[in-house]
Amino acid sequence: MDLSEFEADNSVSCRLASAIPDVCKTQDCCLGIDEAGRGPVLGPMVYGICFCPVSKKEDLKNLKLADSKTLTEEQREDLFLKLDEAKSFVGWALQILSPNTISTSMLQRSKYNLNALSHDAAIGLVQFVLDSGVQLKELFVDTVGPAAKYQEKLSQRFPGVEVTVCPKADSLFPIVSAASICAKVARDHAVKSWTFPEDMGELDTNYGSGYPNDPKTKAWLLKYLDPVFGYPQFVRFSWSTAQTLLDSKAVPVHWDDDEEDGEKAAARQNNTSMLSYFKASAQQSDSRTPHRFFTERRLQSLHTL
């Protein structure tokens, strides 16, 4: 799997896709969606879709696909090669959400949670396939969240497509298994070949599975904690594992939208200058209030250096 496009800038999201098989543009198709790397505190999360004509479901079954989690890394690689060999009727596409995208989205001023992020990635991929001319009729989605709500969301978004959202879809439907294999292979590659944009010097890449409860991962997070910057972008800052470590071991950093300073954030949204101006004048009611030229520019005289 060639990830060079993502590796060129692994701070942002990236979409990778196979060629669209011609047969998918003329025949009714089914499409499976699955994700890989949702839980880990390290590396990207990958959304994968796989699609083929409904008539080719049996051919897909013959590839002996299974849920990627039940397979070894080697088996997954083999199966991905088989999928690639079947490119005359099977297509795939991936959305790689970089850990930096995950961190900055989830920690955004107006929070963008992981579910919304995931749904948007999935919807984006389906739309991409539709835009490419695939005759999409059936959609199978594996989910960890509430299935009914997600199913309704997708059905509304893609009228005319029969949507099935259910847990364990990756073991029930071969097309979802195929999607899960694509996603997992991409995630494994991305983690293994991660090039740190930071200058990390001699780096120990023994970070284990990346899951927060993996002792190797924990040890790595402790070892590479920087007191000012926290972590390289490879780490998802929005994970509580990372946050907890930062809270106890890194220097405190305060933002204007921190809960502690929520008053400030409210002031910013309403009328910052007015309020701070008022506060200032209340404090020094005896002296003259500075001209608005200075208050607007946050400029003040100094009493001492």
């Binding site: 920690l107 509580s240 809270d247 933002w255 939208d257 809960e259 300073d261």
Partner: peptide, 9 residues
């Protein structure tokens, strides 16, 4: 997720 620590003077 934001830091809830009080700012020290």
């Amino acid at each position: 997720m934001t830091t809830k620590k009080k700012r020290t003077p």
